[in-house]
Design a binder for these strands. Structure first.
Length: 818
RNA sequence: GCCGAAGUGGUGGAAUUGGCAGACACGCUGGUCUCAAAAACCAGUUCCCGUUUUAACCGGGAGUGAGGGUUCGACUCCCUCCUUCGGCACCA
């Protein structure tokens, strides 16, 4: 029966067979090379979308390829199951978040299975299970013990729609990562993880990733961590109770050019001034009322003179102190020294406030941009007393040295990266294992009391307070130290905690004694290939790198980085824009699968674009893939028909020639396929080559002979990467044993790629004029003789003098005429 | 503004180290099969001009965002610029 007659039943049949035979189950085999292929696990939102399908199909091809290459491949899947949508659903449909989540998982698991992906389902993880989140709590306690978590009252990002706080990474560009609402600032007492302590290590670790991660991801992370080296410099404040203002600068070499100081409106100095200065108070009032987001977007820089002067420590000059809205309290010290000649923002501010602009850096060569604009580049110091004449680079070192010797300043590095705020005022997350004792204060829950279970009976309101607060029997507890009354922390953890170490848990997912057995993780980790969306560049991919480094410091992992190679797959678009529910441009995987089957869907997704690039959905393209699949199916049918028939009488010589040609072309293509896959996962071109092999077999005169049988079978094996169900079926039809997915990937034979005759393009002055067929490795003189007999070349040459022959052996000839 | 990625037929996309631009598909055109359609199969398909009764064939020219450069030879390397997408954005 042909594929198109009952492909849906066949796909289900083979899926069941793979599952029953547990052919993708893996275990530690120390004598075997391992390959850990990981895809970013999904949030169980209800159903899978094309983005998931793309992600997981790419992952499956990679896993299958290395498995067939003889590696012990670990390819797990699970569910990032905590999160806000479950609570929203709870409010909307009056269903418990757990029930909603687990229903979704069940649905999506079926959908994933319908794609025929080679997962090891035995190690499946669901992060909302106590058996998993227990270890989140355990890690939290380990961090607490090492001083890496702390509670702090601070201005934090608040999403009014999600009714919870957000980490800095989750409020990029001032909007909520989940709902795109503009975030507000709120002062709250919250738990933070000291990720900043690892800022340098996170930057440093990039050296392990440089050639194996997309450069844009590394740059995004680098920018996000935002390291800047410079100095803190103390400016004494004249005639004020506020003794000194500390500024941060990366340009200590411009210190002589500082003609004013600017401090942020939120700075304590500003607040102090406002007490006795009505105008300043009025200004602060106006500025602080505006949301930070709006303030950052404002083009105009405003400010007001504080009435005080600061003393420049390098030359004792008194310079005015301004309060200005372009100075951010959240970065550096919240105060800056301003050098209008060499900083464009200071320049603009100085212009509007009539402040002196003093040039202290001259360009090494070329001209300065002054007086039209600030000259911001490095150069030679001028007007800088005994430092004049030094380069900016030397000057920075010398000036900082001087300030340090006088205790007027010090070397300092600042990062843009902020500590990770992990408290969430929500129910559906990991309870933070902290109790507040009336006598003993803040304590972590004892390890043996873990997990702190999430209570079942909860009323979810979405009001911005943790629903756990109202479950008295849960909140009220006893102090394990003094036995007195204590209350539990009611905030839950950011769900990014769950995904920060799941890749390690997969290795030993059922362990109830420890997060994982290092004997197992030491074999599987690090992840060899990670596949997912680029949107996680500065969230999940920073958090989990941090977590891994923490586990490294605990001695739980041996490598410094968790993910050796990263592939960020492009978006799936329709009409040029990402598929989204709100835009209504969605193609449902289920619909496509029930119409064309999983294999066609997989094939199209892999063929339409290289994995890294955006993929535009095309129904016509899908049909093309459907046609190809059936064409392969018919090819096998045709083979089985002609196989046992006696070959027509043929001339032996002719047959040998055809056979050689087939093998040569096939081996060339196979070599290309291996290169396409191993080099850059170029599945689109690899598939194109399988199409060429198919075309080759269709046009092979002696189809049905042994050679074509070998090529055909290998084609089926290659295709099992992309269309596993079809391949399994054809493999069976060809009389081979289950399972094609456990066979070895074919290897090409360089010796069979033979070309005794080569077509050489002949160019004249770089323009193609003719082509000739000659023997391989023909001596140059013979080659020239043949070329000079070619009519087209003779015609082009006509009386013209040949200046030069450029002969690239076996490749090309270019004749240069005068 | 800064950083990153990318610009190739009607479309998606190919082109090891600089060496035949457009692989493989989609679409379109024509044909075979059929009462007809679908499917399948075969042929053609970068653009412009010319030769030609039309077509085939042949000949000439242009062509990888634009303009320069290096080179016997440039989609590929260098410089200047434009456009699109993505990230960061008063970070001192």
């Amino acid at each position: 029966m042909s594929w198109q007659e009952n492909f849906l039943e066949k796909e289900l049949f083979w899926q069941k067979k793979w599952e029953e035979n547990k052919i993708f189950k893996t275990e530690v085999k120390l004598d075997k090379k391992k390959f850990y292929c990981l895809v970013m696990f999904p949030y169980p939102s209800g159903k899978i979308h094309m983005g998931h399908v793309r992600n997981y199909v790419i992952g499956d091809v990679i896993a299958s390829y290395w498995r067939m290459k003889g590696y012990n491949v670990f390819h797990p899947i699970g569910w990032d199951a905590f999160g806000l949508p479950a609570e929203n659903a709870a409010i909307k449909h009056n269903v418990h978040p757990e029930k909603w989540t687990k229903n979704n998982i069940q649905n999506m698991r079926d959908q994933l299975k319908r794609l025929g992906i080679s997962y090891n389902w035995d190690v499946e993880i669901t992060t909302c299970e106590p058996s998993y989140y227990k270890w989140n709590q355990w890690f939290f306690i380990k961090m607490f013990e090492r001083g890496l978590v702390y509670k702090k009252k601070a201005l934090v990002n608040w999403c009014p729609k999600c009714q919870t706080v957000l980490a800095n990474e989750q409020a990029q560009q001032g909007v909520c990562w989940r709902c795109d609402n503009i975030v507000e600032q709120k002062e709250l007492d919250q738990w933070f993880i000291k990720i900043t302590e690892y800022a340098e290590k996170l930057l440093d670790g990039h050296k392990f990733l440089e050639n194996n991660w997309p450069p844009e991801v590394l740059t995004m992370q680098k920018n996000w961590i935002g390291k800047s080296e410079g100095a803190e410099i103390k400016f004494a404040v004249r005639d004020s109770d506020f003794n000194e203002i500390v500024v941060f600068t990366t340009r200590a070499d411009t210190l002589f050019g500082a003609t004013f100081i600017a401090v942020a409106p939120e700075h304590d100095f500003s607040k102090l001034v406002a007490k006795n200065n009505f105008k300043v108070a009025e200004y602060l009032n106006k500025i602080l009322k505006k949301p930070l987001n709006e303030r950052k977007l404002a083009k105009e820089k405003t400010g007001i003179f504080s009435g005080f002067y600061g003393i420049n420590p390098i030359n004792n000059e008194a310079i005015p102190i301004y309060i200005a809205d372009y100075v951010l309290m959240e970065y550096g010290t919240g105060a800056i020294m301003c050098v209008p000649a060499h900083d464009q923002r200071d320049f603009e501010f100085a212009k509007t406030h009539n402040i002196t602009i003093r040039e202290v850096i001259k360009p090494l060569s070329g001209t300065t941009t002054l007086p039209e604009a600030a000259y911001e580049l490095d150069g030679i110091m001028v007007n800088s007393d005994r430092f004049s004449g030094l380069s900016s680079y030397e000057g920075r070192i010398k000036i900082i040295e001087y300030l340090e010797s006088k205790n007027l300043g010090r070397k300092k590095i600042y990062y843009k990266l902020k500590d990770w705020l992990i408290s969430r005022q929500r129910y559906w997350g990991t309870p933070i294992p902290i109790i507040y004792c009336e006598k003993c204060g803040i304590l972590t829950v004892k390890e043996e009391d873990l997990p702190v279970m999430l209570p079942q009976n909860v009323h979810i309101t979405g009001t911005g307070e943790s629903p756990l607060k109202y479950i008295e029997e849960w909140v009220n507890t006893k102090c394990h130290k003094c036995g007195g009354n204590a209350k539990r922390e009611t905030d839950t953890m950011d769900t990014f905690v769950d995904s920060s170490w799941y890749y390690a848990r997969y290795c030993d997912s059922k362990n109830d004694k420890e997060p994982f057995d290092v004997n197992i993780t030491n074999y599987w980790l690090p992840v060899d290939q990670y596949i997912g969306g680029i949107e996680h560049a500065c969230m999940h991919l920073i958090y989990s790198r941090f977590w891994h480094k923490f586990m490294y410091d605990l001695g739980l992992v041996k490598t410094e980085e968790p993910f050796l190679k990263l592939l960020t797959q492009g978006m799936v678009t329709l009409g040029g824009v990402a598929m989204s529910k709100s835009r209504g441009n969605i193609v449902e995987p289920d619909e496509i699968i029930s119409k064309y089957g999983a294999d066609t869907t997989r094939l199209f997704i892999l063929f339409a674009a290289p994995p890294q690039k955006q993929l535009e959905w095309s129904d016509k393209g899908v049909e093309g893939c459907w046609r190809f699949i059936n064409r392969v199916d018919r090819l096998v049918e045709k083979f089985l028909e002609v196989k046992n028939k006696k070959q027509l009488d043929t001339e032996q010589q002719e047959y040998e020639k055809e056979k050689k040609y087939l093998l040569s072309e096939y081996n060339k293509l196979l070599k290309g396929i291996i290169l396409d896959i191993e080099k850059e996962y170029q599945f689109n071109t690899a598939i194109a080559k399988t199409m060429e092999i198919t075309n080759l077999l269709y046009s092979y005169k002696y189809f049905g002979d042994e050679v074509s049988e070998k090529v055909l079978k290998e084609l089926v094996v290659i295709l099992s990467l992309f269309t596993p169900h079809l391949s399994e079926e054809l493999w069976y039809k060809l009389g081979e044993k289950f399972s094609v997915r456990k066979t070895n990937f074919p290897e090409y034979n360089e010796d069979l790629i033979i070309e005794d005759k080569i077509e050489i393009p002949i160019e004249i002055n770089g323009k193609l004029k003719s082509k000739i067929l000659v023997d391989k490795d023909l001596p140059e003189e013979d080659l020239k003789r043949i070329i000079l007999k070619d009519t087209k070349i003779l015609q082009a040459l006509q009386n013209k003098k040949i200046l030069k022959w450029v002969i690239i052996k076996n490749k090309l000839v270019n004749i240069v005429l005068e």
